[in-house]
Design a protein around this nucleic acid. Structure first.
Length: 430
RNA sequence: GAGACUGUAGCUCAGUCGGUUAGAGCGCCAGGUUGUGGCCCUGGAGGCCGUGGGUUCAAAUCCCAUCAGUCUCCCCA
Protein backbone atom coordinates (compact mmCIF):
# COMPACT_ATOMS: atom_id res chain seq x y z
CA UNK A 1 0.00 0.00 0.00
CA UNK A 2 1.25 3.45 -0.84
CA UNK A 3 2.27 5.53 2.13
CA UNK A 4 -0.18 8.29 1.42
CA UNK A 5 -1.30 9.09 4.93
CA UNK A 6 0.55 11.93 6.57
CA UNK A 7 0.60 11.20 10.25
CA UNK A 8 0.57 13.74 13.00
CA UNK A 9 1.10 13.63 16.70
CA UNK A 10 -1.82 12.49 18.83
CA UNK A 11 -4.28 15.16 19.92
CA UNK A 12 -3.02 17.03 22.95
CA UNK A 13 0.59 15.89 22.50
CA UNK A 14 3.52 17.70 20.92
CA UNK A 15 7.07 17.29 19.74
CA UNK A 16 10.01 18.99 21.37
CA UNK A 17 12.52 19.99 18.70
CA UNK A 18 16.17 21.13 18.91
CA UNK A 19 15.43 24.59 17.49
CA UNK A 20 12.40 26.83 17.29
CA UNK A 21 9.82 25.82 14.71
CA UNK A 22 6.64 27.78 14.67
CA UNK A 23 3.88 25.33 14.09
CA UNK A 24 0.53 24.19 15.23
CA UNK A 25 0.67 21.75 18.07
CA UNK A 26 1.86 23.97 20.87
CA UNK A 27 5.55 23.81 20.39
CA UNK A 28 6.15 25.56 23.68
CA UNK A 29 9.88 25.34 23.91
CA UNK A 30 12.91 23.78 22.27
CA UNK A 31 14.76 20.82 23.73
CA UNK A 32 17.60 23.20 24.63
CA UNK A 33 15.13 25.21 26.66
CA UNK A 34 13.75 22.12 28.36
CA UNK A 35 17.27 21.09 29.28
CA UNK A 36 18.02 24.52 30.66
CA UNK A 37 14.90 24.53 32.83
CA UNK A 38 15.44 20.96 33.97
CA UNK A 39 19.03 21.73 34.93
CA UNK A 40 17.94 24.68 37.04
CA UNK A 41 15.37 22.57 38.83
CA UNK A 42 17.91 19.80 39.45
CA UNK A 43 20.27 22.35 40.92
CA UNK A 44 17.69 23.44 43.48
CA UNK A 45 16.96 19.79 44.26
CA UNK A 46 20.66 19.25 44.85
CA UNK A 47 20.79 22.07 47.36
CA UNK A 48 17.90 20.54 49.28
CA UNK A 49 19.55 17.15 48.97
CA UNK A 50 16.54 15.62 47.27
CA UNK A 51 17.26 12.45 45.30
CA UNK A 52 15.80 11.75 41.90
CA UNK A 53 13.40 8.88 41.48
CA UNK A 54 12.34 7.60 38.06
CA UNK A 55 9.32 5.37 37.96
CA UNK A 56 7.68 3.71 34.95
CA UNK A 57 5.20 5.63 32.87
CA UNK A 58 3.03 2.51 33.01
CA UNK A 59 1.45 1.60 36.32
CA UNK A 60 -1.20 -0.85 37.48
CA UNK A 61 -4.60 0.79 37.10
CA UNK A 62 -5.80 -0.13 40.61
CA UNK A 63 -2.86 1.75 42.15
CA UNK A 64 -4.08 4.96 40.56
CA UNK A 65 -7.76 4.24 41.05
CA UNK A 66 -7.37 3.51 44.74
CA UNK A 67 -4.69 6.07 45.35
CA UNK A 68 -6.47 9.04 43.85
CA UNK A 69 -10.01 7.92 44.60
CA UNK A 70 -12.51 6.36 42.21
CA UNK A 71 -14.75 9.44 42.29
CA UNK A 72 -12.09 11.92 41.22
CA UNK A 73 -12.34 13.30 37.71
CA UNK A 74 -8.96 11.91 36.85
CA UNK A 75 -9.87 8.33 37.65
CA UNK A 76 -13.48 8.41 36.52
CA UNK A 77 -12.96 9.91 33.08
CA UNK A 78 -9.41 10.99 32.27
CA UNK A 79 -7.25 7.90 32.38
CA UNK A 80 -5.52 6.35 29.40
CA UNK A 81 -5.98 2.76 30.47
CA UNK A 82 -5.91 -0.59 28.70
CA UNK A 83 -5.48 -4.21 29.46
CA UNK A 84 -3.37 -7.02 28.12
CA UNK A 85 -4.16 -10.47 29.35
CA UNK A 86 -5.43 -10.01 32.84
CA UNK A 87 -3.22 -7.04 33.69
CA UNK A 88 -4.73 -3.56 33.74
CA UNK A 89 -2.34 -0.80 32.76
CA UNK A 90 -2.65 2.94 32.98
CA UNK A 91 -0.44 5.73 31.70
CA UNK A 92 0.28 7.56 34.92
CA UNK A 93 -1.89 10.68 35.33
CA UNK A 94 0.33 11.91 38.18
CA UNK A 95 3.41 10.67 39.98
CA UNK A 96 2.65 10.79 43.71
CA UNK A 97 0.91 7.41 43.83
CA UNK A 98 3.66 5.75 41.76
CA UNK A 99 6.33 7.18 44.06
CA UNK A 100 4.46 5.88 47.08
CA UNK A 101 4.16 2.51 45.34
CA UNK A 102 7.89 2.46 44.83
CA UNK A 103 8.57 3.53 48.41
CA UNK A 104 6.47 0.65 49.71
CA UNK A 105 7.71 -1.87 47.16
CA UNK A 106 11.34 -1.28 48.09
CA UNK A 107 10.69 -0.76 51.78
CA UNK A 108 12.41 2.59 51.66
CA UNK A 109 11.29 3.15 55.24
CA UNK A 110 14.04 0.68 56.11
CA UNK A 111 16.61 3.16 54.84
CA UNK A 112 15.80 5.21 57.88
CA UNK A 113 15.04 8.89 58.07
CA UNK A 114 12.83 10.78 55.70
CA UNK A 115 12.93 10.05 52.00
CA UNK A 116 13.27 13.24 50.00
CA UNK A 117 12.49 12.30 46.41
CA UNK A 118 11.96 14.32 43.25
CA UNK A 119 10.84 13.35 39.79
CA UNK A 120 10.35 14.89 36.39
CA UNK A 121 8.60 13.36 33.45
CA UNK A 122 5.47 12.95 31.36
CA UNK A 123 1.97 12.35 32.69
CA UNK A 124 -1.19 11.60 30.76
CA UNK A 125 -4.77 12.72 31.15
CA UNK A 126 -7.52 12.47 28.53
CA UNK A 127 -8.77 16.02 28.92
CA UNK A 128 -9.78 18.48 26.25
CA UNK A 129 -6.55 20.33 25.44
CA UNK A 130 -6.31 24.07 25.88
CA UNK A 131 -3.84 26.69 26.96
CA UNK A 132 -1.47 25.17 29.52
CA UNK A 133 -3.22 21.83 29.36
CA UNK A 134 -2.19 18.86 27.29
CA UNK A 135 -2.94 15.16 27.19
CA UNK A 136 0.70 14.31 27.55
CA UNK A 137 2.11 16.94 29.85
CA UNK A 138 5.19 17.10 31.99
CA UNK A 139 5.45 17.45 35.69
CA UNK A 140 8.20 17.82 38.19
CA UNK A 141 7.58 17.36 41.85
CA UNK A 142 8.91 16.36 45.20
CA UNK A 143 7.71 13.97 47.86
CA UNK A 144 8.90 13.93 51.46
CA UNK A 145 7.91 10.54 52.77
CA UNK A 146 8.10 9.35 56.34
CA UNK A 147 7.64 12.47 58.42
CA UNK A 148 4.55 13.98 59.95
CA UNK A 149 6.57 16.90 61.26
CA UNK A 150 5.34 20.34 60.24
CA UNK A 151 8.90 21.15 59.22
CA UNK A 152 8.55 18.66 56.38
CA UNK A 153 5.56 20.62 55.07
CA UNK A 154 7.32 23.95 55.45
CA UNK A 155 10.62 22.83 53.92
CA UNK A 156 8.81 21.27 50.99
CA UNK A 157 6.95 24.50 50.32
CA UNK A 158 10.17 26.47 50.67
CA UNK A 159 11.80 24.13 48.15
CA UNK A 160 8.97 24.66 45.69
CA UNK A 161 9.26 28.42 46.03
CA UNK A 162 13.05 28.24 45.66
CA UNK A 163 12.60 26.72 42.24
CA UNK A 164 10.49 29.60 40.99
CA UNK A 165 12.88 32.02 42.67
CA UNK A 166 15.68 30.46 40.65
CA UNK A 167 13.87 31.65 37.53
CA UNK A 168 13.11 35.05 39.00
CA UNK A 169 9.38 34.36 38.95
CA UNK A 170 7.85 36.28 41.81
CA UNK A 171 4.39 37.50 40.85
CA UNK A 172 2.65 34.43 42.11
CA UNK A 173 0.33 33.69 44.96
CA UNK A 174 0.86 30.83 47.33
CA UNK A 175 -2.44 29.75 48.82
CA UNK A 176 -2.50 27.67 51.94
CA UNK A 177 -5.16 25.83 53.86
CA UNK A 178 -5.61 22.85 56.13
CA UNK A 179 -7.98 20.04 55.29
CA UNK A 180 -7.79 18.42 58.72
CA UNK A 181 -7.68 14.71 59.39
CA UNK A 182 -9.86 11.88 58.16
CA UNK A 183 -12.67 12.79 60.51
CA UNK A 184 -12.61 16.54 59.94
CA UNK A 185 -13.81 16.46 56.41
CA UNK A 186 -16.97 14.39 56.91
CA UNK A 187 -17.81 16.69 59.79
CA UNK A 188 -17.28 19.74 57.65
CA UNK A 189 -19.16 18.26 54.72
CA UNK A 190 -22.21 17.87 56.91
CA UNK A 191 -21.95 21.44 58.11
CA UNK A 192 -21.65 22.64 54.56
CA UNK A 193 -24.61 20.59 53.43
CA UNK A 194 -26.66 21.92 56.31
CA UNK A 195 -25.70 25.48 55.46
CA UNK A 196 -26.61 25.20 51.78
CA UNK A 197 -29.78 23.17 52.28
CA UNK A 198 -32.06 26.25 52.58
CA UNK A 199 -30.58 27.72 49.40
CA UNK A 200 -30.82 24.50 47.44
CA UNK A 201 -33.11 25.92 44.79
CA UNK A 202 -30.82 28.88 44.15
CA UNK A 203 -27.95 26.61 43.23
CA UNK A 204 -27.03 25.56 39.71
CA UNK A 205 -27.75 22.01 38.69
CA UNK A 206 -24.15 20.93 39.00
CA UNK A 207 -23.86 22.54 42.40
CA UNK A 208 -26.98 20.78 43.60
CA UNK A 209 -25.48 17.53 42.46
CA UNK A 210 -22.23 18.26 44.25
CA UNK A 211 -24.02 19.23 47.41
CA UNK A 212 -24.89 15.58 47.72
CA UNK A 213 -21.78 13.90 46.37
CA UNK A 214 -18.88 16.24 47.02
CA UNK A 215 -19.91 19.43 48.83
CA UNK A 216 -16.29 20.62 49.12
CA UNK A 217 -16.38 21.29 45.39
CA UNK A 218 -18.92 24.03 46.04
CA UNK A 219 -16.13 26.05 47.58
CA UNK A 220 -14.49 26.84 44.30
CA UNK A 221 -17.63 27.68 42.36
CA UNK A 222 -17.32 30.55 39.93
CA UNK A 223 -21.00 31.45 39.84
CA UNK A 224 -21.43 34.94 41.25
CA UNK A 225 -24.45 34.45 43.50
CA UNK A 226 -23.04 31.21 44.82
CA UNK A 227 -19.86 33.00 45.74
CA UNK A 228 -21.93 35.47 47.73
CA UNK A 229 -23.46 32.63 49.68
CA UNK A 230 -19.98 31.45 50.55
CA UNK A 231 -19.33 34.63 52.50
CA UNK A 232 -21.29 33.29 55.41
CA UNK A 233 -20.60 29.61 54.87
CA UNK A 234 -18.88 27.59 57.57
CA UNK A 235 -15.11 27.43 57.21
CA UNK A 236 -13.21 24.19 56.97
CA UNK A 237 -10.56 25.55 59.28
CA UNK A 238 -13.16 25.79 62.07
CA UNK A 239 -14.02 22.12 61.76
CA UNK A 240 -10.64 20.52 61.79
CA UNK A 241 -9.26 18.65 64.76
CA UNK A 242 -6.98 20.28 67.31
CA UNK A 243 -3.88 18.37 66.24
CA UNK A 244 -4.37 19.43 62.62
CA UNK A 245 -4.92 23.01 63.65
CA UNK A 246 -1.77 23.01 65.67
CA UNK A 247 0.12 21.44 62.79
CA UNK A 248 -1.23 24.11 60.48
CA UNK A 249 -0.21 26.91 62.80
CA UNK A 250 3.27 25.47 63.09
CA UNK A 251 3.61 25.29 59.31
CA UNK A 252 2.52 28.91 59.04
CA UNK A 253 5.01 29.94 61.70
CA UNK A 254 7.87 28.13 60.00
CA UNK A 255 7.03 29.74 56.67
CA UNK A 256 6.97 33.11 58.39
CA UNK A 257 10.43 32.39 59.78
CA UNK A 258 11.69 31.66 56.28
CA UNK A 259 10.05 34.74 54.84
CA UNK A 260 7.87 32.69 52.51
CA UNK A 261 4.77 34.71 51.73
CA UNK A 262 1.42 32.97 51.54
CA UNK A 263 -2.28 33.67 51.70
CA UNK A 264 -4.56 31.64 53.88
CA UNK A 265 -7.45 30.48 51.74
CA UNK A 266 -10.20 28.76 53.71
CA UNK A 267 -11.85 27.68 50.47
CA UNK A 268 -8.85 25.91 49.02
CA UNK A 269 -9.61 22.23 48.53
CA UNK A 270 -7.79 19.89 46.24
CA UNK A 271 -9.05 17.53 43.62
CA UNK A 272 -7.46 14.35 44.82
CA UNK A 273 -8.83 12.36 47.72
CA UNK A 274 -5.55 11.55 49.41
CA UNK A 275 -4.83 14.96 50.86
CA UNK A 276 -4.99 15.62 54.60
CA UNK A 277 -3.98 18.60 56.69
CA UNK A 278 -1.76 20.92 54.66
CA UNK A 279 -2.98 21.83 51.18
CA UNK A 280 -1.49 24.51 48.98
CA UNK A 281 -1.55 25.87 45.47
CA UNK A 282 0.76 28.17 43.60
CA UNK A 283 -1.14 30.49 41.27
CA UNK A 284 0.41 32.56 38.52
CA UNK A 285 -1.00 34.95 35.97
CA UNK A 286 -0.86 34.64 32.16
CA UNK A 287 -2.02 31.08 32.22
CA UNK A 288 -5.59 31.56 31.05
CA UNK A 289 -8.07 29.38 32.84
CA UNK A 290 -5.30 27.06 33.98
CA UNK A 291 -3.68 29.35 36.49
CA UNK A 292 -2.26 26.71 38.82
CA UNK A 293 1.49 26.49 38.42
CA UNK A 294 1.88 23.91 41.11
CA UNK A 295 -0.02 22.32 43.93
CA UNK A 296 0.33 19.84 46.67
CA UNK A 297 -0.15 19.00 50.27
CA UNK A 298 0.10 16.37 52.92
CA UNK A 299 -1.22 12.93 52.15
CA UNK A 300 -0.96 10.81 55.26
CA UNK A 301 -3.71 8.48 54.09
CA UNK A 302 -2.36 7.49 50.70
CA UNK A 303 0.03 4.75 51.79
CA UNK A 304 -2.69 2.69 53.42
CA UNK A 305 -4.97 3.21 50.42
CA UNK A 306 -2.37 1.52 48.26
CA UNK A 307 -1.59 -1.39 50.49
CA UNK A 308 0.63 -0.31 53.36
CA UNK A 309 -0.18 -1.90 56.70
CA UNK A 310 1.50 0.97 58.49
CA UNK A 311 0.45 4.57 58.10
CA UNK A 312 3.14 6.50 56.24
CA UNK A 313 3.00 10.26 56.66
CA UNK A 314 4.07 12.21 53.60
CA UNK A 315 3.85 15.58 51.93
CA UNK A 316 4.56 16.59 48.36
CA UNK A 317 3.98 18.95 45.49
CA UNK A 318 3.62 18.62 41.74
CA UNK A 319 4.26 21.33 39.20
CA UNK A 320 3.64 21.69 35.48
CA UNK A 321 6.54 22.25 33.11
CA UNK A 322 4.35 23.62 30.35
CA UNK A 323 2.85 26.19 32.66
CA UNK A 324 6.28 27.17 33.88
CA UNK A 325 7.31 27.77 30.26
CA UNK A 326 4.24 29.90 29.61
CA UNK A 327 5.06 31.92 32.70
CA UNK A 328 8.72 32.35 31.76
CA UNK A 329 7.80 33.43 28.25
CA UNK A 330 5.30 35.94 29.56
CA UNK A 331 7.99 37.37 31.81
CA UNK A 332 10.48 37.57 28.98
CA UNK A 333 12.90 35.23 30.75
CA UNK A 334 15.79 34.60 28.37
CA UNK A 335 16.01 30.94 27.46
CA UNK A 336 18.63 29.68 24.99
CA UNK A 337 16.85 28.72 21.76
CA UNK A 338 19.26 26.05 20.63
CA UNK A 339 22.69 24.73 21.36
CA UNK A 340 25.51 26.04 19.19
CA UNK A 341 28.65 24.26 18.01
CA UNK A 342 32.05 25.57 19.11
CA UNK A 343 33.28 25.49 15.55
CA UNK A 344 31.90 24.80 12.08
CA UNK A 345 34.36 23.17 9.70
CA UNK A 346 34.14 24.32 6.10
CA UNK A 347 35.62 21.96 3.50
CA UNK A 348 36.51 22.92 -0.08
CA UNK A 349 36.94 20.00 -2.42
CA UNK A 350 37.11 16.24 -2.02
CA UNK A 351 40.51 16.07 -0.33
CA UNK A 352 39.49 18.67 2.21
CA UNK A 353 36.21 16.89 2.90
CA UNK A 354 38.17 13.78 3.68
CA UNK A 355 40.49 15.64 6.03
CA UNK A 356 37.68 17.58 7.70
CA UNK A 357 35.81 14.39 8.36
CA UNK A 358 38.77 12.98 10.31
CA UNK A 359 39.56 16.31 11.92
CA UNK A 360 36.03 16.57 13.29
CA UNK A 361 36.49 13.25 15.01
CA UNK A 362 39.77 14.38 16.61
CA UNK A 363 38.30 17.65 17.81
CA UNK A 364 35.26 15.91 19.23
CA UNK A 365 37.48 13.49 21.11
CA UNK A 366 39.15 16.57 22.59
CA UNK A 367 35.77 17.82 23.79
CA UNK A 368 35.00 20.38 21.09
CA UNK A 369 31.44 20.63 19.73
CA UNK A 370 31.94 20.36 15.98
CA UNK A 371 29.51 20.77 13.12
CA UNK A 372 30.14 20.51 9.38
CA UNK A 373 28.33 19.94 6.12
CA UNK A 374 27.31 16.45 5.07
CA UNK A 375 25.88 17.29 1.67
CA UNK A 376 28.91 18.47 -0.28
CA UNK A 377 27.55 21.97 -0.66
CA UNK A 378 29.27 25.11 -1.84
CA UNK A 379 31.42 27.19 0.45
CA UNK A 380 28.77 29.88 0.50
CA UNK A 381 26.18 27.36 1.64
CA UNK A 382 28.51 26.03 4.32
CA UNK A 383 29.19 29.53 5.62
CA UNK A 384 25.48 30.27 5.63
CA UNK A 385 24.86 27.11 7.59
CA UNK A 386 27.57 28.04 10.11
CA UNK A 387 25.97 31.43 10.51
CA UNK A 388 22.54 29.92 10.99
CA UNK A 389 23.87 27.64 13.69
CA UNK A 390 25.47 30.58 15.45
CA UNK A 391 28.89 28.97 15.39
CA UNK A 392 31.38 31.42 16.93
CA UNK A 393 34.15 30.11 14.66
CA UNK A 394 34.42 28.62 11.20
CA UNK A 395 37.55 26.72 10.23
CA UNK A 396 38.04 26.85 6.47
CA UNK A 397 40.06 24.08 4.89
CA UNK A 398 40.92 23.83 1.20
CA UNK A 399 43.95 22.75 -0.85
CA UNK A 400 46.21 25.51 0.48
CA UNK A 401 45.35 24.72 4.09
CA UNK A 402 45.89 21.01 3.58
CA UNK A 403 49.34 21.74 2.24
CA UNK A 404 50.16 24.09 5.12
CA UNK A 405 48.63 21.89 7.81
CA UNK A 406 46.61 24.79 9.15
CA UNK A 407 43.07 26.06 8.83
CA UNK A 408 41.85 29.56 8.19
CA UNK A 409 39.87 30.22 11.33
CA UNK A 410 37.30 32.99 11.11
CA UNK A 411 35.75 34.58 14.15
CA UNK A 412 32.21 35.03 12.86
CA UNK A 413 31.21 37.95 15.01
CA UNK A 414 34.04 40.21 13.88
CA UNK A 415 35.02 38.60 10.61
CA UNK A 416 38.67 38.42 11.69
CA UNK A 417 40.55 35.48 10.28
CA UNK A 418 43.88 33.85 10.95
CA UNK A 419 45.76 30.64 10.23
CA UNK A 420 45.73 28.02 12.99
CA UNK A 421 47.59 24.73 12.86
CA UNK A 422 45.25 21.71 12.85
CA UNK A 423 46.92 20.53 16.04
CA UNK A 424 46.14 23.82 17.77
CA UNK A 425 42.51 24.07 16.65
CA UNK A 426 40.94 22.48 19.71
CA UNK A 427 42.60 24.90 22.08
CA UNK A 428 41.93 27.87 19.81
CA UNK A 429 38.16 27.52 19.54
CA UNK A 430 37.44 26.75 23.16
C1' G B 1 -18.25 15.28 28.17
C1' A B 2 -20.69 20.54 26.44
C1' G B 3 -20.02 25.26 23.76
C1' A B 4 -17.53 29.20 20.51
C1' C B 5 -14.03 30.37 16.80
C1' U B 6 -10.39 28.77 13.22
C1' G B 7 -8.00 25.37 9.23
C1' U B 8 -4.98 28.28 1.78
C1' A B 9 3.16 26.88 0.59
C1' G B 10 7.89 25.11 6.19
C1' C B 11 5.88 29.94 8.94
C1' U B 12 2.47 34.50 9.01
C1' C B 13 -1.44 35.49 6.04
C1' A B 14 -4.15 37.59 1.30
C1' G B 15 -7.71 35.61 -2.13
C1' U B 16 -14.91 33.89 -1.23
C1' C B 17 -21.91 37.92 -4.26
C1' G B 18 -18.74 30.24 -6.98
C1' G B 19 -15.94 31.34 -13.05
C1' U B 20 -9.69 30.41 -17.02
C1' U B 21 -2.61 28.05 -15.15
C1' A B 22 -4.11 29.91 -6.39
C1' G B 23 -0.80 34.84 -4.52
C1' A B 24 2.51 37.88 -1.06
C1' G B 25 6.09 38.43 2.82
C1' C B 26 9.43 35.57 5.67
C1' G B 27 12.13 30.98 5.48
C1' C B 28 14.58 27.31 2.21
C1' C B 29 17.74 26.30 -2.38
C1' A B 30 20.83 28.46 -6.24
C1' G B 31 23.30 32.46 -8.75
C1' G B 32 25.40 37.55 -8.56
C1' U B 33 31.30 36.89 -5.73
C1' U B 34 35.54 30.04 -10.20
C1' G B 35 37.76 30.10 -1.61
C1' U B 36 34.21 33.45 2.76
C1' G B 37 28.17 34.00 6.52
C1' G B 38 25.01 38.12 8.21
C1' C B 39 22.93 43.29 4.11
C1' C B 40 21.33 43.83 -1.06
C1' C B 41 19.77 42.06 -6.10
C1' U B 42 18.02 38.00 -9.42
C1' G B 43 16.01 33.31 -10.13
C1' G B 44 14.03 28.56 -8.33
C1' A B 45 11.71 24.72 -5.58
C1' G B 46 7.50 24.04 -2.60
C1' G B 47 0.05 23.88 -2.24
C1' C B 48 -5.20 18.31 -5.36
C1' C B 49 -6.72 25.47 -0.52
C1' G B 50 -7.12 19.90 6.69
C1' U B 51 -9.92 15.27 5.03
C1' G B 52 -14.44 12.95 3.03
C1' G B 53 -19.06 13.63 0.88
C1' G B 54 -22.95 16.85 -1.28
C1' U B 55 -25.08 21.10 -4.34
C1' U B 56 -23.58 23.09 -9.30
C1' C B 57 -22.05 23.40 -16.15
C1' A B 58 -18.22 25.07 -12.60
C1' A B 59 -16.22 24.83 -5.45
C1' A B 60 -10.31 27.30 -1.89
C1' U B 61 -15.15 30.02 -2.04
C1' C B 62 -21.94 27.34 -0.60
C1' C B 63 -23.95 22.89 2.57
C1' C B 64 -23.06 18.45 5.72
C1' A B 65 -19.82 15.31 8.25
C1' U B 66 -15.14 14.36 10.16
C1' C B 67 -10.22 15.44 11.93
C1' A B 68 -7.00 19.00 14.04
C1' G B 69 -5.86 23.71 16.51
C1' U B 70 -7.23 27.81 19.76
C1' C B 71 -10.36 29.48 23.69
C1' U B 72 -14.33 28.76 27.44
C1' C B 73 -17.23 25.47 30.90
C1' C B 74 -15.61 21.40 33.84
C1' C B 75 -11.20 19.83 36.28
C1' C B 76 -6.38 20.00 37.30
C1' A B 77 -0.09 20.70 36.72
Amino acid sequence: MAGSTKFQSIKGTFDILPYPVRAEGSNLATSAQWQHVEAKIREVMRRFHVGEIRTPVLEPTPLIARGLGALTDIVSKEMFAFERGDTHYVLRPEVTAPVMRSYLQHNLAQQGGVQRLYYMGPCFRAERPQKGRYRQFHQFGTEYIGSSDARADAELIALMMAIYDAFGVSDMTLKLNSLGDAESRPRYKEALQAYFAPYRNDLTATSQERLGSNPLRLLDTKVEHERKLLDDAPLLIDYIDDASREHHETVCGLLDDLGVRYELDPFLVRGLDYYTRTAFELLGGKLGAQNALAGGGRYDLLAQEVGSKQPVPAVGFAAGFERLFITLQAKGYALPDATTPDVFLVALGDDAQRRVFALAQQLRAAGVAVAFDLKGRSMKAQMREANRQNAPFTAIIGQDELAAGEAQVKRMETGEQEAVAFSALAAYVR
